[in-house]
Amino acid sequence: MTAPIETTGAAAEAQSEVVLQGVAGKRIEGRSLGRIAWIRFKRDKAAVTGGIVVLLLILVAVLSQPIQTVFGLDPDAFHQDLIDPELLAPKGAFGGISWEHPLGVEPQTGRDILARIIEGSWVSLVVAVGATLLSVAIGVVMGVVAGFYGGWVDSLISRLMDTFLAFPLLLFAISISASLQNGAFGLEGLPLRIAVLIFVIGFFSWPYIGRIVRAQTLSLREREFVDAAKSLGARGPFILFRELLPNLVAPILVYATLLIPTNILFEAALSFLGVGIAPPQASWGGMLTTAVDLYQVDPMFMVIPGMAIFITVLAFNLLGDGLRDALDPRSK
């Protein structure tokens, strides 16, 4: 059995230089919190798939008009020659699916379903994103102010949140949308309906995110960096927008991502009830409304817009869950 060879003197110094050269040859880089979150997010295959679907939906919604122009799609064109005059159902199998109409045509009217799905995508996205931005903006400001200042300010804003949460939102949205159908605020037609939906959905749903932001702010205001900012002479507005808000980006982003599918479903429900987007403008909820009356004639007409809503909501939920796990792994 041989004893270990000890390196001393010049040999040890030479070995240290070799190790240092190897370390210097391989550059060590630090990872930011954003990069670490991105690495976690990429490992979640379901979240990545949901993100890809969301990006495709956004591209289809933004480029809906060019797509229809390039492929010769017209969501309002009637094709009565494709409808059986006796059954009022599309001719052929599976709702009249063909190369010219990949998803078939509507019963009675013969309008192309693919064109109306593409046309309805931007309506759902504009309403959902607009309502989400409005509710997030109001909820974040109210929640941060209530959580940071506390006292009577917190009590006042909290009671205001309780008041808004007590509103029957669906009935209130139906009454407002129905009363403003003819024109208001210098708007009429489709722009008015979209503006009313964004206002009703966004303005009356801000307490949900307001409560989340308030709870996070109550915890953050006790941290050392807030005390350090106060000791340096920073005032309330500076601490709110320069110290607290950057630390609230993660929960706000996650909740906003999960709120968008909820607003998509709400817009579809209002259109389904006849107080949302009015025909002939295509919307997924409006297509479901028409499909209810024609379900016996062509069941596929109900399946396609229903699947469009299902896939969109599922993709946003998967993306939101992935962002939550990536930004806050302790929440698993």
Rank of each mutant, 00 (worst) to 15 (best):
1 M>I: 10
10 A>T: 13
11 A>K: 07
15 Q>G: 06
20 L>E: 08
25 G>S: 14
40 R>M: 12
43 R>Y: 12
43 R>A: 09
44 D>K: 03
49 T>C: 07
53 V>F: 08
54 V>D: 05
57 L>G: 05
71 F>Y: 15
76 D>T: 04
86 E>R: 11
88 L>A: 02
93 A>C: 01
96 G>M: 06
117 I>A: 14
123 V>H: 01
135 S>C: 12
137 A>V: 11
141 V>F: 14
142 M>D: 08
156 L>F: 12
158 S>M: 11
163 T>H: 10
167 F>A: 05
177 S>M: 09
181 Q>Y: 08
187 L>P: 12
187 L>F: 13
189 G>Q: 10
193 R>H: 10
195 A>Q: 12
201 I>Q: 06
206 W>N: 01
218 L>P: 04
223 R>L: 14
227 D>A: 09
229 A>G: 14
231 S>F: 06
232 L>N: 15
238 F>C: 02
241 F>P: 05
242 R>C: 10
243 E>M: 02
246 P>K: 03
257 T>E: 05
259 L>A: 15
262 T>H: 13
265 L>P: 04
268 A>F: 06
280 P>I: 12
289 T>H: 11
293 D>W: 02
298 D>A: 10
299 P>K: 04
300 M>E: 08
301 F>M: 15
302 M>Y: 04
304 I>M: 04
306 G>M: 00
318 L>D: 00
328 D>F: 09
